[in-house]
Nucleic acid binder design. Structure first.
Lengths: 202, 202
DNA sequence: ATCAACACTATACGAATGTATAGCATAATA
DNA sequence: TATTATGCTATACATTCGTATAGTGTTGAT
């Protein structure tokens, strides 16, 4: 395997064709959805032919698996690099911020997850399970080091983390769209109402 | 394996074929999305042939327009029948409840709107604009009768109404899915964390 | 230098899609 | 009763889809 230690993953031209294909498909899926994205559109966006897409990923299912694994890697990388020092809320805040930074660096993640998670039952992939598992393992790890608050049940805390980090991102487009229609495009951004999404113990 | 989604055949049996087709398409779109639903699947679910679908709605776009108009009618009908008596918060509560009842009677509305509203950019229909308009007009009407609270700006209140009524419905499946995976299918439902979605003045 | 593995293109095929058209039966209208 | 409109079926067509296959050039190990 050819290594791609170009250290600049943003520059697409330095990437292997396989990575370029995955990135192109990722962006298209995030913007238009998997159903509305053809293999030919992916190939064209990546600057290759359809045959090469099939060669590297075999099927469209394989392509989605690669994309979803990539998303999990991004989450893992973000959480991993958050520092483990300070008080419990400080640690939680640091982890939340690391993930928030990753999401803002990779907008396709938000778009893809919004589409995948709004359809939790019928979705063909397993990205929600994978991310829930990842978050649960992280919470468990923190607990074992004695960091996390033990006041909440495990499940509640995991759900809280996911919803806090993703819920707002999913609903915000709806708020923005309505705000644009109601207040006009040149209204003061400061007046836009603030969206609050959280979960609380029942 | 032929599975009927959403619509009970009893209610369906004395409807016109045109209404049956719209209802079938509505339920399928809500469950699987428009892209994943073929005209032939709609025809089969409605017990007719493809030709009749085309005969009544011309194109797939026409079918979506009919569905979205039907949704607006359902909202309008629900709001219209809410009583205009009592204190301001009582009126607001009555309207919220009327809409909540309608949504619980028509689960396809929730499913359809979840898909349409979480995908505000790529969506081909105009259902978000239509519903925002409808809600805005309702708020204006109440204001003219001197009912609504004037503390909030118009836009904020409209967005608040929409988000309160729909936001939770959209995110709840994600919470449920995670709760199932983390706590198991036979965990006490009472322990499931509560989802909170709201907007506040900035 | 040879040979095998790999990256990649080109073309083709069957299935499924949205839509168009022609025809049939029944009910309304004259 | 004759005619016209309407609800509906059946079939066909062009396009697009995912995927399979065969082939070309290039790289890397022996």
């Amino acid at each position: 395997m050819k290594k791609t230690v170009g250290v600049s993953p943003k520059v697409n031209s330095d990437l292997t064709a396989k990575a370029r294909i995955r990135n192109a498909a990722f962006a298209l899926y995030a913007n238009y959805g998997e159903d509305a994205t053809s293999m030919r559109a992916i190939a064209e966006a990546a600057g290759v032919t359809v045959g090469l897409v099939v060669h590297h990923f075999r099927t469209k299912d394989g392509l989605r698996e690669a994309i979803e694994q990539h998303i999990v890697d991004l989450f893992f990388g973000a959480i991993e690099q958050a520092p483990l020092e300070g008080t419990t809320p400080e640690i939680a805040a640091a982890r939340d911020e690391a993930v928030a930074d990753m999401l803002s660096d990779n907008p396709a993640v938000v778009g893809y997850l919004r589409r995948a998670l709004l359809d939790p039952m019928g979705h063909r992939g397993r990205i929600l399970e994978m991310l829930t598992d990842l978050t649960a393992k992280q919470v468990a790890t923190l607990r074992n080091v004695g960091v996390a608050s033990k006041a909440q049940r495990d499940s509640s805390q995991v759900i809280g983390v996911m919803i806090r980090q993703l819920g707002q991102l999913f609903l915000q487009p709806m708020v923005d769209s309505m705000w644009n229609q109601l207040a006009g495009p040149n209204a003061a951004e400061d007046d836009k109402p603030l969206l609050v999404v959280k979960v609380q113990e029942s």
